[in-house]
Simulated scan of single mutants.
Amino acid sequence: MASGPSEACSTSVTGSYNAPDYELPDVNTKAFNVGDFGRLWREKLKTDLSLDHDGEEEGEARQQLVAEPSIPADMVEELQMVCGVSTLDCSEETPNTDVIPQDTDLVTLQIRNKVIEKREERLVCDRTCRQEIFALEHHRERKPHHTMLVLGSQKLTELRDAISCVSDLQIGGEFSNTPDLAPEHISKDLYKSAFFFFEETFYNDMRYSECRDLSRTIIDWADSHDRGYGKFHAAKMEDYTFNDMCIKVGYPYLYCHQGDCEHLIIITDIRVVHHDDCLDKTLYPCLIKKPWIWTRKCSVCKLFIVRWVTNNDTLAPEDPSFFCDICFRMLHYDADGNKLGEFLAYPYVDPGIFN
């Protein structure tokens, strides 16, 4: 997983200025302080790089209109009301794109409607329990899962909350006897501990009472013998912003959550913000790129996304076996919902949900 450019803008950190110096050519830099690097750039540019310009452009436009002697004051008020930003808000209800009008003249919608009717003839099902997938690009493990823009003034916890992972959505438990039982919690609600590893320091998420220090086992293991890894440290993720940290550009760091789900974090660029970036600070961390992830289809119908995975299944030729919700129930339960055969069933969360 790769993290995109980070913008160092506000918080200053004590210490000498430290510009990046490449440790390995075309690979990564030596460690440098993000806050010092941003402060050095701002001093060189000597311009206002903040994102706080709310209402300034609108006020300037009003002053220009008032300054025109040929435009009366009441017309200025009317122009502001008719051409203001508030008029861009569409209050009407958004149409349902899943419903195809029968009287449409668009050839593409007519063809799509015929395809859907043929599918319903082969397999009668409720549209709400399926999802159509169009695989545009095969996911490669070496491709970044997410590329984000992060502000230097943001805390590490904000990046942690912005990272999407299918492991956080997993549902624990075995449901072969109660497939209709709605789970109360997902893994993200139960296991909230996580850490980032930057430059020999573990930054643990300790915002909640349920959080544990996942790095303690690693630190104790490294300290028990002279293993040549140096001295590791632990800190709270919520106490540090990116401006407070010393990092290397292009160097692989670690994000770990759910106990053993690990992601590589690579800072690919550090720069000041410019007008081509998103200027709304509330939208950061800002996701700017993600690949299309290949989805797993049902092993029976080859049509719908997998919703169940079974183990020790006497009715399936493979172990494990993957089924959509419709095929799973048709094969493993009778008309009254009674279980047929012996098997273990677990809910399956497909990574393609992030598409």
Rank of each mutant, 00 (worst) to 15 (best):
L24S: 14
F328Q: 00
D269N: 10
K188H: 13
G84R: 03
T94W: 05
L49I: 10
N18Q: 15
K281Y: 02
D103N: 04
L136Y: 10
P183D: 11
M206F: 06
G173N: 02
D54M: 03
L303P: 13
D334A: 04
D325W: 01
Q170I: 12
D313H: 00
C261T: 02
T108Q: 15
I293R: 09
Q63H: 06
D26G: 15
K231Q: 10
V306Y: 00
E199H: 00
L88W: 01
D189W: 14
G55W: 04
F196T: 05
W41A: 12
N204I: 11
F197E: 03
D325T: 08
L88H: 05
T201Y: 03
G152I: 01
D319A: 13
L190N: 08
E158R: 05
V273T: 14
N18C: 14
K118E: 07
F202G: 03
A162R: 01
L254T: 08
N243G: 15
G230Y: 05
P347I: 08
L24G: 12
K44N: 11
L214I: 14
V115E: 05
R329M: 03
R307H: 07
R142H: 15
Y208D: 13
C83P: 07
D220R: 09
N311W: 03
N338L: 05
L79S: 12
Y284D: 10
G259T: 00
V85P: 00
G55I: 06
I305H: 02
S153E: 14
D105C: 05
A8V: 07
E132V: 08
E199V: 09
L283K: 15
S86R: 04
C246I: 14
N312F: 10
Q131Y: 10
N113Q: 06
E238Y: 05
M81T: 14
